[in-house]
Simulated assay, not measured.
Amino acid sequence: MKDVAEHARVSVSTVSYVLNDSGPVAPERRNRVLDAVRVLEYSPNESARSLKRRSASTIGLVVPELTNQFFATVAEGVQKAASARDVLVVLCVPDATGQPEESHAKLLRGQRLDGVVFLSGTGTLPASILELSRFGPVVLVDEQIPGFDLPAVACDSRRGAREVARHVLDQGHRRIAVISGPSALWTAQQRLAGYREAVAGAGMDPDEVPILVGDYRQASGTALADQALSRPVAQRPTALLCANDLMAIGALEYCKSAGIRVPEDVSIVGFDDLPLSSLITPRLTTVRQPAHDMGYKAVTALFDLLENKESELLGLLPTTVQLRDSVAPPPAGSP
């Protein structure tokens, strides 16, 4: 800025007024400053400006993977909200590097970030993220981590799971199996609780419903569907409640390979409403959660916290059941 001021024959404060549009400057002086900026190819130091203004210029985003469309859509929401504020997003994807969340958290800690949006793939909070939370806001997305009082933007997974399970039960299904997510994750716990509530509401014993624990990936849905359905027709479930769409798609894949018709022989539901879920055959009945909105609201909440404002965006967002083609009444004669 001193070089620009010397070239334009004005004071440094005048350059600041022009660049930040923060004070009155005569048109002739403004033009001289802008000409100097072009000639010298001046680019402001955003880190320095951030310290000066006490406002954010760079935030971090930790997301488990981007091959899962849900996480990618959350990341898009984060990027859109950050771009609207001219804020840079430092992206860390543990699965892409093979390094644990803790390694990425340590990397972010050294970047002098103004805040972090964190999507846990393990249900735990790395020590370095906890350290970051002492110096700037850390907002969780799609998870709440017990024992840590961190702000979070998530969906009402319990209600969504309860409603989609109730739809399956209303079709007459009584032999049901659950393909759950990782037991350490809050989302998996909430969805399992919702399924159990629906089963209890139908007069059944939730403890008698088989629970097969997956990892939210498609391959685990395929393997667990094999485990659930590789038994005599009279004994196998007539419906699978899958805790996310990728595992439901894996279950559909298994059924096609095994000659099991969906939904004529087995009904399958998912959770997330990935874009792919309405394109596959049969189209997947699932629970929609607003992934893009969660990412966007997480950044907005982070800025509210940076400005010492009480954010109204934290909490549980609504989910909606998307009724499609993968659910039908159980086969005739099923108990």
Rank of each mutant, 00 (worst) to 15 (best):
Y296G: 01
S220A: 11
D245Q: 04
L51S: 05
D226K: 15
L51K: 06
P100L: 02
R134E: 06
H167Y: 15
G147V: 05
A75G: 07
L51A: 04
V287S: 09
L323W: 08
D21W: 00
G98D: 14
E253Q: 10
S83V: 00
V116Y: 03
A200E: 15
V4N: 05
L246Y: 02
T73I: 12
S311M: 10
L305R: 05
P330I: 12
Y216G: 03
P329Y: 05
Q99L: 15
L229T: 11
V266E: 01
V74D: 14
L125Y: 10
G110N: 07
C155I: 00
I260K: 06
S43E: 07
I211R: 15
L212W: 12
K106P: 03
E208Y: 07
A127D: 11
I59Y: 08
V87N: 00
R174M: 05
Q79C: 09
L302R: 12
S103P: 00
Q111P: 00
R30D: 02
I176S: 11
Y195D: 06
P263M: 04
N20V: 01
V37R: 01
L241R: 08
P290F: 14
S334Y: 10
A184H: 11
L125H: 09
V233Y: 09
E197C: 04
R109Y: 01
D215T: 14
L185C: 10
D245K: 06
N45Q: 07
G77H: 04
P282S: 01
V87Q: 00
D170G: 14
D245S: 06
F271E: 02
A105N: 08
V4W: 06
I211Y: 12
S220P: 02
E101F: 08
S11A: 02
A219P: 00
V153L: 03
D21A: 05
A188M: 09
V63M: 11
D215V: 12
K2S: 07
L306M: 13
C242V: 08
T319H: 08
V78H: 02
T187G: 09
Y17N: 15
D95F: 04
A298M: 11
D3L: 14
R175D: 13
A56F: 01
S16K: 02
T14Y: 07
N20M: 03
H7T: 04
S267F: 03
R38I: 02
V117G: 09
L316A: 05
A184I: 07
Q79T: 11
